[in-house]
């Protein structure tokens, strides 16, 4: 696995070395979230990643942030990262324009396992920016549509204007045998969709608990409630996968920051089969 990954990723002669790449496009998804498309052609050679993996993005002189890759894994030449502007580095990233250069190293971490979803229904449950690390999964599923059963996408956002990838959500809804349910925490009178937490969407779908794989990504509290709801619906918890977030400095298991009990989120995660971290989810301030 080590060699295989090394072949497909950036040169890893020094685990902490960053590589300059040019920004090809900036798209603002909402007031504080934007997508950078990076030009990966040039000196880097071929870059490939698995859905759910992340990169460390470096802003010259400012620092690094761990950002999931949110583009189609089968697309070559460019990479998308959807970024929530919250801290120093992400704010600096938000000020970048087309043609600017940032540093990239990666890809790091575990991925959403697609092999286990073969011939099964897939339920993607996500909230807020959690849709970004799951978008590569959705692309991959749709690319080989016939290999999977029903595809259900449940997505919760803060408000209608905060929703990510609005055009694509509609496009996915039109795909064969795909159900997309979107809900927001606050609506106004122009919003005809669902209002309420993302877990409430589960009551509107028929979940075949014997034959469904669930991929869950969002704020930790949202994932906890989602797991409770899935359990109530009879889904075996070893069919549930989730993506965790912690502070990351190195992304390769050296800096210690992202420890989550016995695990390192950066290299054991960010994607975990639920049983592996189930006991940890209830531990306060772990």
């Amino acid at each position: 696995m080590k060699d295989e990954l090394a072949n497909r990723s950036l040169p890893m002669s020094d685990a902490m070395m960053t590589y300059p790449v040019t920004i090809r496009k900036v798209i603002w998804e909402n007031d504080d979230t934007f997508t950078l498309t990076l030009d990966m052609n040039g000196t880097l050679g071929e870059f490939s990643f698995l859905p759910g993996q992340f990169n460390m993005l470096y802003v010259y002189g400012i620092g690094e942030a761990a950002i999931s890759i949110s583009s189609d894994p089968s697309r070559t030449g460019t990479l998308d990262h959807t970024i929530h502007r919250v801290g120093t580095v992400t704010t600096a990233l938000s000020q970048k324009k087309r043609g600017d250069v940032i540093g990239v190293r990666g890809p790091y971490g575990s991925s959403w396992p697609l092999d286990v979803a073969q011939k099964r229904d897939v339920c993607v449950i996500t909230g807020g920016i959690g849709l970004a690390p799951l978008r590569p999964v959705i692309y991959s599923l749709l690319k080989k549509r016939d290999e999977y059963g029903r595809i259900i996408i449940l997505y919760g956002g803060r408000s209608p204007l905060d929703l990510l990838y609005r055009v694509e959500l509609e496009r996915w809804e039109d795909a064969k045998n795909v159900e997309v349910l979107v809900t927001v925490d606050r609506g106004d009178s122009s919003w005809k969709g669902h209002i309420g937490v993302v877990t409430s969407l589960l009551s509107y779908i028929k979940l075949d608990s014997r034959n469904t794989i669930a991929y869950v990504c969002g704020p930790e509290i949202m994932m906890k409630y989602t797991i409770d709801e899935l359990e109530r619906r009879g889904l075996p918890l070893d069919r549930v996968y989730l993506s965790m977030e912690r502070n990351m400095k190195c992304a390769v298991g050296f800096c210690g920051h992202c420890q989550y009990g016995p695990t390192f989120i950066c290299k054991d995660g960010p994607v975990f089969p639920l049983p592996r971290i189930r006991p940890l989810l209830d531990r306060k301030e772990l």
Partner: peptide, 19 residues
């Protein structure tokens, strides 16, 4: 020191590393 970099136009260039 992990690396030094210098500004180059709109971007930057790594000028030395921790080797």
């Amino acid at each position: 020191k992990l690396f030094s970099a210098k500004r180059e136009g709109k971007g930057f260039e790594i000028v030395s590393d921790s080797a």
